[in-house]
Simulated scan of single mutants.
Amino acid sequence: MQQNAPFELLSQLRSEAIALAAQGLTYSTQSAGTKNIAYVVNGVNFYCEATDVKEVSVCENLMIVPQTKAWMRGLVNSKGVLYSVTDLSLFAGYGRAIQAKKGHLLLLAEEAVQSSILVNRVIGFRYFNESDEMSSLDDKQEALDGLSAFVDKGYRADGQDWYRLNVSKLLASEQFREVQ
């Protein structure tokens, strides 16, 4: 491969984009669309919009809060702000707690609630093509278990199912807010 080949390819793409723009069209790329954060909870792939998450962190210095539900794992201090920690696996009813030291925290962007969710693993940013959207989630209820009320969309991409957790709906639910 020639050393100039990548530059020639970029130049060609630029020329094509300019020609399309002149016709009033745009060049669509894989990253077009909504930016999402993808994560895994007990082997099930979830995602939420990146704007729903303030920060991704590790779960260090977890302060246990006695006499709360099992899924309410405690509190963490991030930059002087206390966030409640919800084990998404236990909340969903999967029956197996996430090891706090091995999991990741998604500090949610909703300032009024100051909450975080503990997940097994954060994969990173993910974009989905509209053509991969699932027409129905009815046959996925068993996999979603207790989170089915908070999942409003799904995609089948790269041979895997991905489910969107509606963070606003989760935070507004009585079930999520009642920790005792």
Score class of each variant (00 low, 15 high):
Y27I: 01
R73M: 13
R96W: 07
V40T: 08
G103Q: 03
T29Q: 10
L13W: 01
S28I: 06
Y83G: 03
D139Q: 13
T26P: 05
A50Q: 09
N61C: 10
V113F: 10
M72W: 14
S135H: 07
V122F: 02
V85G: 01
T29I: 10
G124D: 02
S115M: 08
D87I: 08
E49R: 11
E60D: 14
G95E: 02
V58R: 14
V113K: 09
L105T: 04
F46T: 04
I37R: 02
F46Y: 15
R126T: 02
L137G: 04
N129T: 03
S78N: 14
G124S: 01
L106R: 00
R14Y: 14
E130Q: 10
L82I: 05
C59P: 05
L9W: 07
M134C: 06
G80H: 08
Q30I: 04
F128T: 03
N120H: 06
S116E: 03
E142Q: 13
S57D: 12
G124W: 08
E130A: 12
A92I: 00
N36H: 08
G43M: 04
Y27A: 05
C48F: 00
C59W: 10
L82F: 12
T26Q: 10
S136A: 09
Q141H: 11
A17K: 03
V58A: 14
T51D: 09
V119Y: 05
L10Q: 08
F91N: 02
T68S: 10
K35V: 10
A70L: 12
W71C: 00
Q141C: 01
G24F: 00
A70E: 15
R126M: 13
N36K: 07
A17W: 02
V85W: 01
G124H: 04
L137I: 02
Q67K: 11
T51W: 08
L13H: 06
D139M: 07
A100H: 11
R73D: 03
W71L: 01
S116C: 05
R121E: 15
V44W: 04
